[in-house]
Computed example of a mutant assay.
Amino acid sequence: MDGVTLPPDLTAPDPDFDALDQSARRHVTGPEGRRIHWAEWGPADATPLVLLHGAYGSWPHFIRNINAFSNDHRVLVPDIPGYGLSDLPAPLSIAAIGEAVADGLVELIGNRPYRLFGFSFGGAIGGRLMLHHRDQITHAMLAAPAGIATAKVPPMKGVRFKQGEELVQALAFNLRSIMFARDETVTPQVIALQHRVSMAARLRVERVDWGEGLRAPVTDFPGHLSVIWGAADSFVGPAEMPDRPTWIKRWNPRAATHVIDNAGHWVQYEAADQVNDLLRAHIML
């Protein structure tokens, strides 16, 4: 946040963030220039649970989920290439990013079975892992995943060169427009989190080659698959939302689908308890 002036309430210590940040174990995988940075929580010998964050994000996209699973899982969260501390990918494609993350995960866990949760852009990357590690992923949950259909683009405000309260208002507008269904979800904590992770982002999604999307990964996926959305997801038009579960079921009739009321795109934050319960039930199958 160097060079940017924020009001004091957005620079105050965040106990939730600080506790997770300080307790994380850190790893780096991949060759020089293609490094991927990982954060890890939980017992090292437990079943791995891999969480893949959304665009312009990092591990704080799961700030309300990590503790729910770190007692009995080895929770692993990469900074997806181009975000956080990780290097930019080459080429700029979902396929290349997915391959890099898959290779990095093998460095950390070998061929051990694992469970996967992918959010938004991370859902598209998760689809690539579902291809690379077809028989290694026992359970996959995709939340508001990119790669199903062309996304509706919600309005947003630019934040570059903004300072102080003007910056805070722009960040708050974007969170309401893009991420959340309810105004009360937009707190100083989440505004500060969003600013923290977005300032570290270098990969712009409009420059990425999206490839074939999720149809191939979802079709005939042999593990347990669940796909969830917030009912007010800003990237899906209201008339289109009923079609999303239908497409998933058409591609994989065994898949479970859930639409969560009163929640937006960042569903695992806004409806954390419901998503944590759904994920817990899913991995018990």
Score class of each variant (00 low, 15 high):
237 G>H: 10
100 A>L: 11
259 V>W: 01
78 P>Y: 05
31 P>C: 07
100 A>T: 11
278 L>D: 02
137 I>M: 07
209 D>W: 07
238 P>F: 12
198 S>L: 06
179 M>H: 14
61 H>F: 13
41 W>H: 10
77 V>R: 05
49 L>S: 10
118 G>K: 02
26 R>L: 07
261 D>E: 15
213 G>Q: 10
192 A>T: 00
130 M>H: 02
62 F>C: 13
258 H>W: 04
182 R>E: 14
65 N>H: 08
66 I>W: 01
246 T>K: 12
212 E>I: 12
245 P>S: 03
121 F>E: 00
241 M>R: 06
251 W>F: 12
73 H>Y: 13
9 D>F: 07
94 I>C: 04
217 P>Q: 10
229 W>E: 07
21 D>E: 08
3 G>I: 06
242 P>Y: 04
153 V>D: 14
9 D>K: 04
240 E>Q: 12
11 T>W: 03
63 I>A: 10
108 L>H: 00
38 W>G: 02
50 V>I: 14
77 V>I: 15
85 L>W: 10
164 G>F: 09
7 P>Q: 07
236 V>I: 15
247 W>F: 11
133 H>Q: 09
158 G>P: 11
145 P>M: 10
184 E>I: 15
76 L>A: 04
184 E>M: 07
52 L>H: 04
146 A>W: 02
152 K>G: 06
275 V>Q: 00
62 F>T: 09
203 L>C: 10
116 L>I: 00
30 G>S: 03
123 G>R: 11
240 E>N: 13
124 A>K: 09
21 D>M: 02
201 A>P: 01
143 A>W: 08
88 L>T: 11
150 T>H: 09
165 E>P: 13
217 P>G: 13
47 T>H: 08
273 D>N: 12
167 L>K: 14
271 A>G: 10
124 A>V: 01
173 F>L: 14
131 L>F: 03
242 P>V: 06
263 A>Q: 08
124 A>C: 13
209 D>P: 05
160 R>W: 03
222 P>M: 05
139 H>D: 14
125 I>M: 00
205 V>Y: 09
91 P>L: 02
215 R>N: 10
203 L>Q: 09
237 G>D: 13
165 E>H: 07
162 K>S: 11
167 L>N: 08
159 V>K: 13
75 V>D: 03
129 L>N: 05
213 G>T: 13
255 A>R: 08
263 A>S: 15
123 G>V: 07
105 L>C: 03
67 N>E: 14
193 L>Y: 06
30 G>E: 01
